[in-house]
């Protein structure tokens, strides 16, 4: 059975690229593109792996991460955080909040697929 990955990201082109890559690699992919209700969606979908962008409209990826880590069914889901800002303090913050991995855009396609395999343990 294919693993389920949820991609929370607001740039439509990036969504398209990553979904294409992952589904070709055999993942079942679902996406969500705003920050307001992202935490609820994540809890509802219970993905095997979560890919979370930092700059989201409505609510930042950090807040969402903090939220899902604090309570509910997704406390332990592996999270890959993506950011385009590329500053060390973002990385530190992500780690402190419990992100499993942290990746700076732009990334190589091989890199993201490899990381996700690692996270899902397959």
């Amino acid at each position: 059975m294919s693993k389920h990955v949820l991609l929370v990201e607001d740039e439509p082109n990036i969504i398209e690229a990553v979904s294409f890559l992952l589904s070709r690699d055999g993942w079942s992919v679902s996406t969500h593109s705003n920050g307001h209700d992202a935490a609820d969606v994540i809890r509802a979908k219970q993905p095997d792996v979560l890919v979370l962008d930092v700059m989201l409209p409505g609510r930042s990826g950090f807040d969402i991460l903090e939220d899902i880590r604090s309570e509910g069914v997704c406390r332990d889901v592996p999270v890959l955080m993506l950011t385009a800002r590329g500053q060390t303090k973002d990385r530190e913050r992500a780690e402190r909040l419990g992100a499993t991995r942290f990746m700076t855009k732009p990334f190589s396609n091989a890199e993201i697929i490899e990381t996700l395999h690692e996270l899902s343990g397959s």
């Binding site: 740039e11 082109n13 990036i14 690229a17 385009a84 800002r85 590329g86 855009k105 732009p106 990334f107």
Partner: peptide, 10 residues
Amino acid sequence: RTPMTSIRAF
């Protein structure tokens, strides 16, 4: 970086 990401990925 944001447009760059799409460009690189595609």
